[in-house]
């Protein structure tokens, strides 16, 4: 069979357009390969070719979903690829979401999609059913491993005509798709064997893992916000000017707690963002755009909000692990409960 034609999707950074200052560029299409596409193409040259590369800014994609998806649809109709590769996106949330949306659009057209991300990227949970998502490290430092992993998977996909096998065997995140097959032993026998292993506290593997829905039920509403104590929390990295705690711009190892009693609003002289995952220009000019301190103070003054907790809390939600985010939130919550806070406004970029 002739070489498969591949369309490759990249964000503005890996597409070599620019950094966060270019995250708002709209989709564009290029001939041939760009960035990591070069190495992918080289590795796949016997069986496939990246014929076109589509590049879009991460912020643009997530803020203009309908337009971005329509553009992807048009490119797919024009190019008619046999396969789509997206990313790898590592632990970049917006990029992972964009790769996932690309996968969804392609899946609707029956075009298989192969992408690669870190397990905590929100794109994995939301879009696994639309794509083969290969696990990667949590940062682009894992590119050297991610590229051969994608190449091997694509080769296998082509060789087997799409019958790559189970997620465990072929190395991709489970897609929630059931395939019928004939097992050697009948179900009752397998169940009893499993039970015996369980009773002996030996290792056993369920054939039907229950989904892990860690949901928290909504709390009752605040009866009257004009009498309530409110606190401000953000994952958008708003810190006092100079970032006194040196919160990292990605994969933050801590959160900050900062006094707001002497402030009426944020200005470019008293605050900045430590977040490295979005264009910082606007938040550095006026951090009220991320944590609405000015408006909240005003409304406390007008009696529309009861009182404001004396501190705001900030971390950088850029590539931060779920385990760390949980830990910070547990500490912050202890504080809030001790101070009788009744409602929280949490802002994310």
């Amino acid at each position: 069979m002739s070489k498969r034609r591949i369309l490759h999707y990249l964000n503005q950074f890996f597409g070599q357009i620019g950094g966060e200052d270019k995250a708002d560029i709209s989709p564009m299409i290029k001939e041939g390969q760009v960035g990591p596409g070069m190495a992918l193409n080289q590795g796949l040259k016997e069986v496939a070719e990246i014929v076109n590369t589509v590049i879009c800014g991460d912020s643009y994609f997530n803020e203009n979903l309908d337009e971005a998806k329509a553009a992807i649809q048009n490119y797919l109709d024009e190019v008619k690829p046999d396969l789509v590769i997206a990313g790898p996106a590592f632990n970049a949330g917006r990029y992972g979401m964009a790769c996932g949306h690309v996968a969804e659009v392609a899946a609707e057209k029956g075009i298989p999609v192969i992408t690669a991300m870190y397990e905590e990227n929100p794109g994995v949970e939301i879009f696994a059913k639309y794509a083969y998502i290969i696990p990667t490290a949590d940062s682009a430092a894992g590119m050297r491993k991610a590229v051969p992993a994608i190449i091997n998977f694509v080769k296998k996909f082509i060789e087997t005509d799409g019958e790559v096998g189970s997620p465990e065997a072929a190395g991709y995140f489970p897609r929630g798709i059931r395939k019928n097959f004939f097992a050697e032993k009948r179900g009752s026998l397998r169940a009893v064997e499993m039970l015996i292993r369980k009773l002996k506290t030996e290792e056993f593997k369920t054939e039907y893992p229950m989904p892990d829905f860690d949901r928290v039920a909504p709390n009752p509403p605040v009866a009257d916000i004009s009498k309530a104590k409110v606190a401000l929390v953000t994952s958008g990295g708003i810190v006092p000017k100079g970032n006194p705690d040196r919160i990292e711009s990605s994969s933050a190892s801590k959160y900050g707690k900062y006094k707001l009693t002497d402030l009426l609003e944020f200005t470019e002289d008293n605050s900045e963002t430590a977040h490295g995952g979005y264009d910082p220009v606007y938040a550095n000019q006026d951090a009220d755009r991320v944590v609405p301190l000015d408006v909240v103070k005003e409304m406390v003054g007008e009696g529309k909000i009861g009182t404001l907790h004396d501190y705001w809390y900030a971390t950088v939600g850029n590539g931060t692990s779920v385990a760390n985010a949980k830990k910070y939130a547990a500490d912050i919550t202890k504080d809030l409960v001790a101070d009788g806070v009744e409602a929280v406004i949490l802002t994310s970029t």
Binding site: M97, S235, L346
Partner: peptide, 29 residues
């Protein structure tokens, strides 16, 4: 973070641009 604060009994409103992510992390409002 929203979920952990909510778990402690304090209602949280999550103001976020990428709503699908907010839904995935388990924000309620």
């Amino acid at each position: 973070m929203v979920k952990e604060i909510e778990r402690a009994g304090i209602p949280v409103v999550h103001v976020a641009t990428v709503v699908p992510i907010s839904l995935t992390v388990g924000a309620n409002r």
